[in-house]
């Protein structure tokens, strides 16, 4: 991760319509063999919102898109706040250090309460583009993932070795299982479109979990996640 790269991009950039510079860059950057996938992508999605490529991009994109969805669907914001509030004691019960965990938790609740009062997409954008706040939200999501993996250790032990030391450190990119854990912990669905399969004939789209309708869409290219918006 280049320091300059980290600083040069907003944590979550403005949406860009198709044909804008970022979108061109997205298309140009792809090798010819996935031209078919790219054209399928363009037919389904018209806009992209880029996230800062610092290893927290999945979580930065995720929390932006989710809070943005919540301010437009207030009952989801209420539901999320309940989950958030009950998560604190769950984390304590699992042995997370009370004093520091509470610091991250308090910041999250402050953000959600602020959105209950002043919830607009612009507000979400400005919250998520404040680096300090964004970092705190990302840390708390990492704790939720870590907690979910610990609570379901038996299930996940078939797949993972590192456990909490793989997810809690910042700037370490989320993998498949972290997405499974996070969406399960919050009981929501997100769709990830994978643009890394080379000569595949159709786009690889994976919903987490598979039996639900996604609230938003993310684009995966090797080592990076951005947000996608439908036409």
């Amino acid at each position: 991760m280049e320091e300059s790269e980290k600083e040069s991009l907003d944590t979550v950039s403005p949406e860009n319509a198709e044909g804008s510079q970022n979108q061109d860059e997205l298309i140009m950057a792809q090798e010819k063999e996935i031209a078919e996938e790219v054209s399928q992508l363009q037919s389904k999605f018209s806009r992209i919102r880029r996230t800062r490529p610092d290893g927290n991009c999945f979580l930065r994109g995720f929390i932006f898109a989710y809070l943005d969805y919540c301010v437009q669907n207030r009952e989801e914001l209420t539901r999320f706040k309940k989950i958030l509030e009950s998560s604190k004691n769950e984390l304590f019960d699992l042995g997370f250090p009370k004093f520091t965990t509470e610091d991250f938790y308090d910041m999250f609740v402050e953000v959600v309460s602020d959105l209950e009062a002043n919830g607009t997409s612009q507000r979400v954008e400005s919250i998520c583009n404040d680096s300090g706040t964004s970092d705190y939200l990302v840390v708390y999501l990492r704790l939720l993932i870590s907690a979910h993996l610990q609570k379901n250790a038996e299930f996940f032990s078939f797949f993972i070795e590192g456990g909490r030391s793989e997810v809690e450190p910042m700037y370490r990119e989320c993998d498949h299982l972290h997405i499974v854990a996070l969406t399960a912990a919050l009981d929501i669905c997100v769709s990830v479109i994978y643009l890394d399969r080379g000569k595949a004939e159709s786009l690889a789209i994976h919903n987490f979990p598979e039996d639900k309708d996604p609230l938003f869409f993310m684009l995966y290219r090797p080592n990076h996640y951005d947000l996608l918006y439908k036409t």
Binding site: F96, P97, T100, F104, V139, R142, L143, S165, E168, P169
Partner: peptide
């Protein structure tokens, strides 16, 4: 490599 933001000075 095992640093977690939940660690404090204590």
């Amino acid at each position: 490599n095992r640093w977690s933001p939940t660690y404090d000075v204590a």
